[in-house]
Write a protein that binds this DNA or RNA. Structure first.
Lengths: 190, 190, 190, 190
DNA sequence: TATGAATGAGTGTTCATTCAT
DNA sequence: CATGAATGAACACTCATTCAT
């Protein structure tokens, strides 16, 4: 086979897309993304058939990245509150360390170019994550709310905290703490 | 349709813009907005100098509308929790009753076409609202967090609840209740 | 109504399209056509929704033009041979006087961008023309062939003669004569 | 599929080009042709330097093929009419049996990508053919027209008949007969 | 020699904005 | 002031051709 499709190039395009979408929204020109990735305009389309395919792939990639970040180093056992805190901290650290990716995600989530199927697949990972937490709910630690509700509250609060962290990077720990307190109080049995 | 007067036309354009932006994002063509408003393409530009001006005005108008909805019928006195509950309920009712406007707002908030100045002005209203609440914080009902923090948490949770209500309109009361419990527990002194 | 769609501009675009398609085929850029017509690139699309729409319209327009040319000045009565000769002469004169349009037609006829429907409509006019000739066939002047056959032979011979005339304009009369003799002998009862 | 030898590959590309050009015109992508030929995109360019070179070669190849078909089995002597009939029949049989090649030819003939030189060379073969017929003209069988004229009339009528045959394959004999009668009457001394 | 990824000029079409009516 | 045709700069995507493998 001649010059195989380069995984590096594919990743460069996705990284560039995150940067550019974060800065200019989903309507950013593909030419700008290609340039940022250091490839020719046409090359982008050998890796992603259409702009929509690229955006959907970016969405899935970012979703998977967040999930992987949250699961990394998760303690196999331990008090429910501690495990939740782990998730929360990893989530916020990821978001705070990758501001471009987080802003890109904000754009993608509200865009109608992300298909229902992508959203479905993207959430599947989180559902697995929540399944791991089913026990703590069963153990009576969490209020009686469906996993989706808990996840949505967590995401909402995390987003709000990340906004503050983005503006005041020095107070990351503060917002992580304050946010978690709010979260725990909101979802845990008092 | 009778030819509406000037002010009516302006409002028709803003209403149409909300609908169209909700459905197709901020990159929706001005021609589509004009058509939805029942005016000619060019007429839109006699009321709003540019598309950006229209989007920013829409943002401010919606912000003001939410604020007005929240303040309407506010009890002059009463327990802090009840007054907060009033705000919360009015906010969620507005969002649930005006799904298009809420979805339009989601698009506008993440768009880079909304200027910092607009955001500043838009939040001023909320700051006034919070000023009214300063006393409850002073009275030791709320945790020691800046008003912005409380507002951000409230908005984040409200958004999350509205997503659920949009999907299950019949359970509006349930989500209003569950959301408020989470909110109160997150911001109030335990 | 503001500035109405200009019939002149529409015609200018069709004329330009004929010129450009004649010279560069149906794959000629729309930008080139617009420029030749003296309008902006975008203007072309206010008159014709797509390039295909323009090409199909051009096809129909040219077909109608040929037909009109053939019918103009047709003697109401007279010997069949003279009436056929009239058609033949008008056809060849049109083709010889409008070389660009004729060459454009050559391109359009073989292009798969001209729809079956356009071809159907385009031939309808000729069928009317042939209907007028039914009598001569009935009168035993023409061989027993369907009208379509006669029309196809006429077109084929005309095309061949026009090629010669294009190369030797001075011998137009010669080729008109020679071609008609071939035609008549081919279709008439000996 | 066993990897074909060089000459086979060249032929495969030409055959594929005929199919693809017949279906999609001369603007069909070279990638499509390569795929249809079962070779890589780049390989096409080791056999033909440019797309134009391929198209011109295809034109010449098809021209040569028709000519060969017409000359095959030609009776060395015999009545002029019989020999003409032989040519005519072989021409129409070739066109009717190779509809793709014939349609490809139609596209090539009107394309400005076929150079004057190619056309010149392509017609040379036919001129040879006509040279063989010079004697019948000399013998007073044909009207006093240049060979080119006769050839053009023959081609024009053949094209027209092939259109009919393509639509009604069952009536091939009928159209061969009717067409030849028209041809003979058009070119022969009455 | 064969392959197919890489390239970037070119294409049809869209759209915010202007301006003649 | 209202209208919608006119404009031309973008934009997503295609494709002939090159060249690293």
């Amino acid at each position: 086979m001649a010059r195989p499709l380069s995984e590096d190039k594919r990743n460069a395009i996705l990284e560039a897309a995150a940067e550019v979408v974060a800065a200019a929204g989903v309507s950013a020109p593909t030419a700008k993304i290609a340039k940022a990735a250091g490839v020719a305009e046409g090359t982008l389309f050998t890796y992603f058939a259409t702009k929509d395919a690229l955006l959907n792939q970016l969405y899935l990639t970012l979703k998977a990245e967040v999930e992987a970040a949250m699961l990394a180093g998760i303690p196999a056992s331990g008090a429910a509150r501690e495990r939740w805190r782990h998730f929360w901290d990893r989530y916020l650290d990821w978001g705070a360390d990758q501001p471009a990716k987080r802003r890109a995600m904000r754009q993608l989530v509200v865009s109608d170019r992300i298909t229902a199927q992508s959203r479905e697949i993207g959430n599947r990972g989180f559902r697995d994550l929540e399944a791991m937490m089913a026990e703590s709910r069963a153990a009576g630690v969490l209020r009686d709310q469906p996993a989706e509700f808990v996840a949505a509250v967590m995401e909402a609060l995390a987003e709000a905290m990340l906004e503050f962290i983005a503006r005041e990077p020095g107070r990351r720990q503060h917002y992580k703490q304050a946010g978690f307190e709010a979260l725990w109080c909101a979802v845990a049995v008092p």
